[in-house]
Amino acid sequence: MNPTVQQVDAQGRLRHFLTLEGLKRQMLIDILDTAESFSGVTEQTVKKVPLLRGKTIVNLFFEASTRTRTTFELAAKRLSADVLNMNINASSTSKGETLLDTLRNLEAMHVDMFVVRHAESGAAHFIAQHVAPHISVINGGDGRHAHPTQGMLDMFTIRRAKGPDFGRLRVAIVGDILHSRVARSQIHALNILNTGEVRVVGPRTLIPMDVADLGVRVFHNIEEGIRDVDVIMMLRLQRERMQGALLPSEHEYFRLFGLTQKRLALAQPDVIVMHPGPINRGVEMDSQVVDGPHSVILEQVTHGIAVRMAVMSMVMSQKAQTTQAAQLDQTPGADA
């Protein structure tokens, strides 16, 4: 097995962006602050800044995605980078060698960054381990493991709505925790930002056994779980990932765990409701709630662009430094 990839270098700067686990609080705050300044770019007549001019970014998507891929693409374009979208049907290729061959070919085209989405946990790490040292890798979602830019755009959305002090917040994550990389990234981010209380709410079959080890409170009843919370983060019911009889039916799920107006009234009066999309209306939540005054679901989409611009520019500025350092040391190819 290859050594673990370091996503933060010896100077404490981002080299890859693979998971939120283990990142320092200040790093998360730097990402949020940088994203805040990028959000002004959309007000310009020319919605572009020249930061990554001449850089080539490849969206390497082994799994279908619309929102994540388009917001990564827009973020890269607003930084003036050139973007290549590659949708690779993972099932049609034998993995392993074929994947490495794909990487070698793209490296030969002198690209600077991969944004990777893959159905298997650890795929982004695997690619980060095997790419040439000058290439940065951003995880756009891997299996059940992590979706760190989604986690950060959710934190950005919470900070915009509730202010920078996460210590006074109660946050409930509701739904299919077991299959959710989004939930894992959210929990890590909320813990790193010292959130007052983090709850997970869902049926026993959809909550992993070890989740309490992450310092969250577990609820199997939505009325109890969302009582007095400031933030509700809904998850999508991942029907395509379900194996075995984890759920009786979607109708039954909605009856037991669906977010309705009536249930929403149990939370704080100024509660915000989030969802990473795509929404199954009438399964995870009522349409009235999706479109209601507490919903910040479309703000999440908007914020996704600024947050991805922040992460991309931070790993790229780091990359330039390591390349230079490598040249000074006359040791190109010496990758950690």
Binding site: R13, D33, T34, S37, S39, P50
Partner: peptide, 28 residues
């Protein structure tokens, strides 16, 4: 105006997270 995103030495000196958003409260 904060010109950090327009600097020509960005790839050398890197990113300063304390970039203040530019504020132009009029039509240019």
């Amino acid at each position: 105006l904060d010109i950090s995103f327009y600097r020509d030495d960005f790839t050398r000196i890197g990113m300063n997270p304390q970039v203040r958003p530019s504020d132009l409260p009029f039509d240019i």
